[in-house]
C-alpha cells in the first residue's frame, strides 16, 4: 500500500509543480482547457456508478443505492458536504440494521 500512496502523492504534486514551470502560453490551447474541465466530470460520475453498484466484478443492487438516493436529495436541497455523506451512511446503515437491504 505504501508505494501506491507515495507514488500517487509524488505524481499529483508534480502535476501541480508542472503548471509553474510550463510557459503560460499553454493556457491558450482551447483543447487543453476543455479536456481538463471535462475529465473530472467523467471520472467522478463513473466513480459514483462503480462505487454504488460494483461488488468486485459483478453488479449488485444493495443498500448503497438507498444511500446514493438520499445523498442526491440532500444535494438538491443544498445540504453541505459533510451532511450529505453522513445522511447517506446513516440511511444505508439503518436499512441494514433493520434487515431491509443487504
Amino acid at each position: 500500500m505504501w508505494p501506491i500512496v507515495l507514488i500517487a502523492s509524488l505524481g499529483t504534486y508534480l502535476e501541480k509543480l508542472l503548471g509553474y514551470v510550463l510557459p503560460h502560453s499553454m493556457l491558450e490551447r482551447e483543447s487543453v482547457r476543455r479536456m481538463t474541465g471535462l475529465l473530472p466530470v467523467s471520472l467522478l460520475a463513473a466513480l459514483v456508478a462503480v462505487q454504488t453498484f460494483a461488488d468486485g466484478s459483478s453488479v449488485t443492487v444493495d443498500a448503497r443505492l438507498l444511500g446514493l438516493v438520499v445523498a442526491f436529495i440532500a444535494l438538491v436541497f443544498r445540504a453541505p458536504f459533510l451532511l450529505v455523506v453522513v445522511l447517506a451512511a446513516l440511511s444505508t446503515g439503518l436499512a441494514r440494521w433493520f434487515g431491509l437491504m443487504a
Partner: peptide, 11 residues
C-alpha cells in the same frame, strides 16, 4: 455508502 455519496457531492 458514504463513498459514492462523497463522489456525488464532489461532482
Amino acid at each position: 455508502a458514504a463513498i459514492p455519496a462523497g463522489f456525488l457531492a464532489l461532482l
